[in-house]
Structures are given as C-alpha cells and as structure tokens.
Amino acid sequence: MQVRALTRGQWEAFRDVGMGGRLPGGGFDASFRGRFPTRDMMVADLAVTTGMRIQEWRSVLEPEFQPVAGRGATLVLHAAAKNGRRRTVYVPGSTMASIEMYRRTERRRAVMHAQEGLRRRWPGLAQVSDIDPARGRITYVLEGTRYRCGLAEVPLAHRGLLVREEDGVIEPLSLLVGPGGLAPSQRAWHETFARANQRLHAMGEGIPMMPPAVTPHDLRHTFAVVVLRSLQLRAAGLEAGRSGAGEGTLSEHVVFNPLLTLQRLMGHASPSTTMVYLRYIDDSAELVQRAFESWSDQNRDFASFVLEQMPGPEAGGRRW
C-alpha cells in the first residue's frame, strides 16, 4: 500500500483553493464556477478529520449523527463500511460546524431547487415512513418492499435514495446532495476531486508543492499518519507519567497501544495494514513538545489537534 499523507499546507490549499474556489491569498476567485464550494470544503474537512473512506462519507445519512455533549458527534458505520466491518466514527466539533454551515446554506437551496425533479422520481425512491434517531431505526419502502432496520444497516445501494416528505417538501436523508437533490455517485466525487486538482495545478504561484493528484484516499492516509503520531505521543506521555514501577498490565498495553487504536479507527481487518503507517511518523523533539501542549489544552477539540499536527514545509513534509 502506498501512503501519501499531505502536509497541512497542501491540505489547506486543496480544500480552500481547489475545492472552495478561493485564491491563494484567501480571497474568492470570481472566475470559479463550482456549484457547491461549501459542501466540497466540508467534505475535505470530514475526510481528513475522520479517516472515512469515500464510500463511507459519501453515503452518510443526516439522522446518523449522534451528538456528543460539547464535543462533536459520533456515527456508526456498518453496511457502508468496507467488508461490512462495523465501527464507530467520531466527528469533531469543528467539522460538525462545517456540516451545519453546509446544511443551512447550499444543501437547503439544492433541496428546494430539486423539488420538481424529486417529485417526478418519487415512485422509484426509498420512501421513509418512520425514523427513530434515538434507537437508530428506520422504516422505508422501495419498489414495493418494506424495510425496517438500523440506520447503520441500510444497504449502500439504498442510502442515496432515501427520502421523506414533510409539510409538502421532499427531503433526502443523505447529508451530501447534488443538483438533483440526491447523493452524488462515487464517480461524481472523483470528478469533483479531479477538477480541484486541475484548478490547483493551473493556479501557479502561492500554492505549495502538491502531489500529482490529491485523491479521497490521500485524505484518509493523512488522518492515519497524523493520528498515529499523536497516539504514540500520548502513549509515551501516559507511560512516563504512570505511577509505580513495572511495565504496566496487559490491559493497559492493549488499551493504549497506538497501532491497535488506529486499526479500530480505520476499520482495518489486519494490524499489518495499519503498520504501514509507522515509517511515516516524525518523532522530532519539536513535534513532541507541540503535541503535549496540545493534549493538555482542554479548550481545543480533536480536529484542531489533528490539523495542527499535520507537518508543514519547515517540518520536512513529504514531497512527490
């Protein structure tokens, strides 16, 4: 497996300039013709701060987000996860703020503009009759068949078709919607990434050295490398601060093992897959100092910590 982890500067350029239509200096580019810059920038946030695969984040349903008091939200992946391997994903508070901005602006407009088309397609859509977010259950009818299951168990093929009607408005359940009001396909997302890469390479000055093309999986790799680094530092800090002599219990080593923790976060079947990331970890003294300072600051959420650990050019960020 080839790992391509972005530096923070590369990721910000991809998100803001490539996906968001901004200029390298921060201003908006009047020549930009992207239809959903807020959505696309939010996707860059979501992918890099959760480590989800493209098939996972593109099929997320709005009712799946379960708020965590003051600390973002969680969602359970199962049917959309690779090989159906169930896991819980934490979505940081700052990423949820990006999601909420998208919900209130572009998503709302897209859904309202798509009402006529959604009405025509209604017979072929998965019509939701009941949702119980607290229990994570949903009931819907698709092509004459009634389904009742957990939200996480909704098949990938059904997720983008789920809609419900409230007060005469057809509302898709998919978080991410396109011009037709339904979830964009995986191919459409690859095309969105391709356009962002083309824009970056055409921009010229003011852009950091970029890989030939940033892919959805590069954002997942970035999450993995950054989180593994932070977990190693946290484990080292816990070990250094542990009272008493000895090497700790077996349960302590399992709970605080960075590779096992990252394996769970990434949904890897085998630890050997996760171990590939080890050779991309920077253990400089400066990074250790910054990491410990970040972990001790209770006023900053996990997303801020993750993004601040993304190495910049001065830290020897990886180049292609």
Rank of each mutant, 00 (worst) to 15 (best):
F256K: 05
V255P: 00
G237M: 07
F256L: 11
L219W: 06
A240P: 04
S251V: 10
V254S: 02
H253A: 10
V227A: 12
L262S: 03
V226M: 09
E252F: 07
L228H: 09
L238T: 11
G244S: 10
Q232R: 13
P216T: 05
V225S: 05
V226C: 10
L259M: 04
P216C: 13
V255D: 07
L250Y: 04
A213K: 14
P216K: 14
V214K: 15
R229C: 15
G246H: 04
L231Y: 09
L259V: 01
H217K: 11
V255F: 08
V227W: 00
N257G: 13
F223Q: 05
G246Y: 02
N257P: 08
S251M: 02
T249I: 06
P216D: 12
L259I: 00
N257W: 07
F256H: 13
T249P: 03
R242S: 09
A245W: 09
E252C: 03
H217R: 15
S251L: 05
S230P: 01
A213H: 12
G246S: 04
Q263A: 08
R220T: 13
G237S: 11
L262F: 00
L250A: 01
L260T: 00
H221F: 12
V225Q: 10
H217G: 08
L228Q: 05
V214P: 15
S230N: 09
A245M: 10
Q232H: 06
H221T: 06
R229E: 12
F223K: 03
G244V: 11
N257A: 11
L259N: 00
G237V: 01
S230T: 12
Q232P: 03
V255G: 00
R234Y: 03
A213Q: 14
G241E: 10
R220S: 01
A240T: 03
A224S: 12
N257R: 05
L262T: 04
N257M: 06
V255T: 11
V254L: 11
L219T: 07
F223M: 05
R242F: 12
H253L: 03
R242G: 08
A236P: 08
V255Q: 02
V227P: 02
G244Y: 05
P216R: 14
L231P: 12
A236S: 12
S251H: 03
L233N: 12
G246F: 05
G248Q: 00
A236Q: 14
S251G: 00
L233K: 07
T249Q: 01
T249C: 05
H253F: 00
L228C: 06
G244P: 08
G244R: 07
V226R: 02
R234W: 09
R242H: 08
